[in-house]
Design a protein around this nucleic acid. Sequence first.
DNA 1: TTCTCATATCAGTATCGGCTGATATGTTGA
DNA 2: TCAACATATCAGCCGATACTGATATGAGAA
Lengths: 108, 108
Amino acid sequence: MRSVEADTSLKSKLFRGLADPSRLSILEVLREGPLNVGEVVAATELSQPNASMHLDCLFCCGLVERERNGRYVYYRIRSRKILQLLAASERVLEEAAEQIAMCEKYEK
Amino acid sequence: MRSVEADTSLKSKLFRGLADPSRLSILEVLREGPLNVGEVVAATELSQPNASMHLDCLFCCGLVERERNGRYVYYRIRSRKILQLLAASERVLEEAAEQIAMCEKYEK
DNA sequence: TTCTCATATCAGTATCGGCTGATATGTTGA
DNA sequence: TCAACATATCAGCCGATACTGATATGAGAA
């Protein structure tokens, strides 16, 4: 059994992985299926180094997997549980969207 | 129907609300039931201004509700969907905890 | 090997957000 | 009204992290 503090610390790390708009938009496009870095760049309009760093971040946190295929590296969402977490966040937004939109914190 | 970009932006705001260890520990203690600010301070060992600001942040983002009772203000988790989101994050951690723990980003 | 393309890495910069200490606001009871 | 307590607010500092531009690494093709 894990301690509560460890859980809280890891959980915050997990949520920070999800808290950046660039990373979220990457996960959004990966929802449709695996993409290589160039395709992610095209789909998200992030710069190539930026996308590469965020993908590495997502990989590091266990949210995506990667596999080299020739010169291309393909990234995919690691598991259904990630998708379920995203879906759960959307259900929260169903009831809290207006409030969150009006909230002055984290304007960006 | 909401646009994808709006969704991504709101979602990142939501996750940022959850991405801070202090706020997560507050949500953790509120899981047991409503608490006033002083009780949150005692349970989390946050400073009073700090706890107050984080509670306001959680309130602002629609994650908790508050209700004044005499001089005390009681905070409670706003809905079951929040609890389900936290539960979903724990299921992700079941499979990604080691990787996230080892990840060098977001050391804190 | 050499060229080309795909991806990763790095230093520098700028910004954002969390924490503290002091103080303000608000509520109850005397 | 005043004193005591609970909570909220604010300025200032500090650390963390996202982005850019340049460059390095790695892989296939010729």
